[in-house]
């Protein structure tokens, strides 16, 4: 029973790990370049949660220094993750741009087909 409680109490970690592993799996296992980027996005999202979930305090308020607000969430992780999201979006944009160019140059975005085509040359 304790075990179950421990598992449930850390449910945020389980979500993080699930997202992380499934994201990585998609990156490794999929040959479609867009899907790989989606996997990469999932992987990054798990990290956002890794930062955010310990920073949030149940019942906490936004961090405003005044007498009414005594329990507040740590603002720093939120700020960091805002930056990380920006970075993630930039990466995704660049990745998608590359995929577009690859599609133009090779006529496909499946890795298998591209490598097969390269070997024929």
């Amino acid at each position: 029973m304790d075990l179950l409680q421990a598992i449930v109490a850390h449910y945020n970690h389980w979500i993080i790990i699930f997202l992380m592993v499934s994201g990585l799996y998609i990156v490794v296992a999929r040959g479609n370049m867009i899907k790989k980027l989606v996997g990469l996005g999932l992987f990054q999202t798990s990290v956002y949660l890794l930062y955010l979930s310990p920073g949030k305090i149940l019942g906490g308020t936004p961090p405003i220094i005044s007498e009414q607000h005594t329990v507040y969430s740590n603002p720093l992780p939120h700020v960091l993750i805002l930056t990380a999201i920006v970075v993630g979006v930039a990466t995704l944009a660049l990745g998608l741009a590359l995929v577009v160019r690859i599609n133009e140059a090779f006529g496909t975005i499946e890795e298998d087909e591209i490598f097969a085509g390269e070997e024929d040359e």
Binding site: L40, L50, P77, I102, A105, E118
Partner: peptide, 30 residues
């Protein structure tokens, strides 16, 4: 045109690397 593939491959690997780095930093931060 293979430069595009190389860049894409590097992007995937590089982002995984950077994300691993952030995970490490996150753990240290916590």
């Amino acid at each position: 045109r293979r430069a595009l593939l190389a860049a894409y491959q590097y992007l995937i690997m590089g982002t995984i690397g950077a994300t691993f780095y952030v995970i490490g930093v996150g753990l240290l931060y916590s």
